[in-house]
């Protein structure tokens, strides 16, 4: 049989195998695999879904049915930085709509779209669990809490100018954040290398300032 994920990086292939082995039923691996496929292709592509279907014994239609249920599996191209501005009730009460507008202006794109230069995708999202630090946003799912429209603009500029390979919550929080939901303890060395949650087993976390582990 041909290897359905032959195109994937060695590290991601290894992760995929480990993940599939971890569940009593291989179908459970669909969601983690969708993250890996997103890393490989930049977003969830038809090919990616076909590959996952083959790995898990599902039809591509079944994989797409699952993928499309969740908001974090992006099926259109995503910019280098996915800026997700929370506009749910607690952030709304604290001025989230203005933050969203500021981010749209600073990135030159609008809610749900990707900037022409491919740098930013902007989206409004429902509650991200940072209500104590409202208004809050995430860059590639790394939190920044207690932002203001001005700080959000500065954050976007910083991203556009510095183009960090890895985004880290602590760094952004220190530079552009305000009051967080809670004291966050020691700095976290890990950060995200793409618009995929930076969770080690799914292969998207990176440590230190060097390039990502892909």
């Amino acid at each position: 049989m041909t290897n359905p994920i032959a195109g994937w990086s060695h590290a991601n292939q290894e992760h995929a195998k480990q993940i599939m082995a971890r569940y009593p039923d291989v179908r459970s691996a669909v969601m983690p695999l969708l993250y890996i496929a997103s890393l490989e292709h930049g977003h969830v592509t038809d090919d990616g879904m076909r590959q996952i279907a083959e790995l898990t014994g599902l039809t591509p239609a079944q994989v797409r049915s699952v993928a499309s249920f969740y908001t974090m599996y992006k099926r259109d191209g995503v910019g280098r930085y996915l800026v997700s501005v929370c506009t749910s009730i607690s952030c709304f009460l604290r001025g989230a709509d203005d933050v969203l507008t500021a981010v749209e202006e600073a990135t030159g794109t609008v809610d749900g779209e990707t900037s022409d230069d491919g740098m930013f995708t902007v989206e409004h999202v429902e509650c991200i669990g940072a209500c104590g630090g409202a208004p809050a946003l995430q860059v590639n799912y790394e939190f920044v809490e207690g932002v203001t429209p001005d700080k959000a603009v500065a954050l976007c500029r910083w991203l556009a100018d510095g183009r960090p390979e890895v985004v880290r919550s602590d760094e952004m929080q220190a530079l552009f954040g305000g009051r967080p939901s809670f004291e966050r303890g020691p700095a976290d060395p890990e950060g995200a290398i793409a618009a995929v949650p930076a969770f080690g087993p799914y292969g998207s976390a990176a440590t230190g300032p060097e390039r990502g582990t892909r």
């Binding site: 459970s28 969740y70 949650p197």
Partner: peptide, 23 residues
């Protein structure tokens, strides 16, 4: 197991479906 962005997965049986690789 990391979710994929869906509040309803907090409902326990939706969570189980999600954990099984379903909607």
């Amino acid at each position: 197991h990391l979710g994929g962005g869906a509040y309803i997965c907090g409902e326990e049986t939706a969570l189980l479906n999600s954990l099984e690789g379903r909607r």
